[in-house]
Design a protein around this nucleic acid. Sequence first.
DNA 1: AGCCTTTGACCAGCG
DNA 2: TCGCTGGTCAAAGGC
Length: 347
Amino acid sequence: MAEKEEEEQQQTKQSLTSKSSTGGASRPTISLPPRPFGEMFYSGGVGFSGFSPGPMTLVSNMFSDPDEFKSFSQLVAGAVASPAAAAVVASAHQPPVSSVGGGGDSLLDPRIKQNRPTGLMITQPPGMFTVPAGLSPATLLDSPSFFGLFSPIQGSFGTTHQQALAQVTAQAVHGNNVQIQSESSTQQQQTSLTEVPSFSAPVQDQRDNSEVTVYEHRSQPQNADKPADDGYNWRKYGQKQVKGSDFPRSYYKCTHGACPVKKKVERSVDGQVTEIIYKGQHNHEPPQNNKRGRDNDNNNNNNNGSCNSLNKSKRDQETSQVTTTEQISEASDSEEHTKMSLIPREG
DNA sequence: AGCCTTTGACCAGCG
DNA sequence: TCGCTGGTCAAAGGC
C-alpha cells in the first residue's frame, strides 16, 4: 500500500495537483453552461450581456479547425492526448461545493491531473472545453473570441488586462500551464474563467457577492509563503495536510475588519502554489497600499497585498510567474467559488 | 507594540 | 453511532 501511495504521490506531484483520482480513463462529459461562462464568472453581465453565441460557438470560433475535434469530448480528448496541447476547460455543471467543509476534493479534475497539457488550461469540471493542440495560449488569448468571452474584464481593465493576459500567456507558452477553474456552490451554474494574471486593478466592482476560488500553480518556488497577490491583506489562521493532496493547505482570512473572505492555499513541496481557493466576497475595497511594510518586503505568507498594479505587475514579472486572483462577485446571493490555477508545465 | 505565522487541538459535517 | 476529514481556534513565538 505504501508503494502504491508513493506512486500515486509521484504522479500527483508530476501533475501538480492531486485531488481526486477518479475517472482517470473516463472521457469527460461536457455540459455547457447555460450562460457564457464569462458572463457567469463576471456576473453583472457587464460586458457579457451582449454575448450571444453559446459556449460551443465560442469554442468553435477558437478552433480554426473544427474537423479535428468534433465534440467537446473529443476536444478534451484531443487536448489530453496531446501533451503540447493547450487546453481551456470550462465546466458548466458542477456539484455544489461546500464552502469550507470539504468541497476541496473535486476541485481539480482528474483529467487535468493526469494530463497536464502544456498550455493554457481553464477547467471547470465536469464539463469542459479545450483548446486542442496547435492553438497556443497566445493565440487563444489573442483571439477575439477569447476576449469576447471575457469582455467584461476588458471593459473594466481594457488593455491592461489584455496585456496581463498576454503576459500570462507568454509565460504559459514558456512553460507554464494556466489552469483556471471555477465552481459555484449554490448556483449550479458554473462560472468560468479566465486567468487573470496581474490585475492592475481588482476586479471587484460588480462582483461582490460571489465566492471565488482561485487556483494557482507556479512553476517556480518563488515566495513559498506568498500564494498570490490579490490586493487584499490576509492572515493565515491555520494549515492542514489534506487527504488526497500531497500539499499542505493553508487557511487565510482577510484581515480587513469584518470581511468574511477566506482563502485556502495549497502549496507543493517546492513551495509552488498549486491551488488557491477563495471563499466569500470582500465587503471592502482592496487596500491600495500596503499598510504593512512587511507585506511588501518579504511578504509574509499572505498575499497581503499590494495590489498595486505596478507593484504587482512588476512582481509578477520578477517572479516570472503570474497569477492573481480576482474577486468575482456576481451572483450575489449565491456562494460561488472560482478557482483559477496556473499550472506550471513540468519541465 | 502590533501583527503575523506556526501548530496542535477541537469542532462540525458526512459517509 | 463511529470514524474520517476538513475547517477553525487559540496559545506561543517571531518579525
